[in-house]
Design a protein around this nucleic acid. Sequence first.
DNA 1: GTGCCCCGGATCCTCTAGGATCCGGGGCAC
DNA 2: GTGCCCCGGATCCTAGAGGATCCGGGGCAC
Lengths: 230, 230
Amino acid sequence: MSSKRQALRADVQEGIQNRLVQGNWRPGARLSIDGLARELEVSPTPVREALVALEHSGLIEYQALKGFVVAPPLTPQQIDELIDARLVLELAAFTRAFGRREALESDLRAAHEAHSAIAERIAAAPEPDYALIHEYFDADSAFHEALFRHAGNHYLGTMREVLNTHGHRMRQTWSEGAERIDADEAVAEHAAILEKVQEHNHDGALRALRSHLEGVRERSIELGTGPTGR
Amino acid sequence: MSSKRQALRADVQEGIQNRLVQGNWRPGARLSIDGLARELEVSPTPVREALVALEHSGLIEYQALKGFVVAPPLTPQQIDELIDARLVLELAAFTRAFGRREALESDLRAAHEAHSAIAERIAAAPEPDYALIHEYFDADSAFHEALFRHAGNHYLGTMREVLNTHGHRMRQTWSEGAERIDADEAVAEHAAILEKVQEHNHDGALRALRSHLEGVRERSIELGTGPTGR
DNA sequence: GTGCCCCGGATCCTCTAGGATCCGGGGCAC
DNA sequence: GTGCCCCGGATCCTAGAGGATCCGGGGCAC
């Protein structure tokens, strides 16, 4: 541990964030600084720093003299606002990225192939595989990330990352009961976007992207309010 | 100091942020943890936490085993991207806020009056008054903030805050030489927006807002590249 | 039985200590 | 004179200690 100094805070932060995203702790659970330090076999100081750095992601909240707690799940209202904000960002990013249509098309196609491949593996799996679902979310996210990579605006990408973290928070809630993912619909909608891009059809692709996000909104709120009847 | 525990980290953070925004340290300057701790008469631990929390604002950067340094000034390219991102956010926020036109108009008018009042005081002042300039920036910012207050989307507001911090970083650079502010132009452009809102003219106001931000872009880049000849 | 008070453990917050690392300057070899 | 090496001070990073605060449970008064 002496050779890899200051991998500590980064490692601790990554470890905690992974557990948060995977839903190891329920919303409202207290994240004891001393407890985490014992568990990770480090001193409390780097744990505190990691939690402070994670606070702005929205995954955890801080209360003075009481510590950090896992943020409560998103309400349907918040999910609605989150997708709405994504719409604003992604439509803008798409239009800017369309200026480099060829590079964009190339990246979108690659991301789409990876995405649909994982979707097929999920469909073939007999029962939910959490690691696979995690991969699926990453692949899905990569498709959208491609829009920002070519948008030529660093700040749009930064804002996407902020929203993406909240998206993790949303999916974290689902993992508790509803593992069913409408992978097919998302893949089909991505395919529609890609197709329009290949046809040099900017406005059509924009409509397809908007339509896709509307679909995400509906499916998310449906899962949020819950098929379990809540 | 025993009664107001855990005002410490917040106080330290606020103090450091104020100094950063006011440009007390030049870009590239090292922020010594121990030094700040001695200066603020606290131990290094809360200083570390405050710096970690400030890192995501973009005002400071972190390098392992070397510490924190004041972020370099924005390049004209970055300024361009920053304003472009503001355009995306503010146009979207405006359209959403126009749904509650009356409340929006009320807030915009109040913000505009405060803004123009300060602009007059600046014009009347014989020489640059830093405190007054600071107030001016806040008043200017408040006008735009009103758009988001009525947009009904929490995430748009969050993203605005992120961009706003980078805006501070931009203005921080100016303060070094060019105190001249084109307050009149900004006030006139705000007035144009307000006028269209009062006329129930959504599209006209949108154009005025876009035009205003284009003006901000031009004036910012002009200041960024510098009348000093840099 | 109900409600209030007290108390002990757990936790947080801050501080101090000490090893590890970085950085700049003087000295030496060539 | 130039370049390299070494070294001392400053700083960073982590650990651990100690006082302050919170929280839950038992006991007592009514």
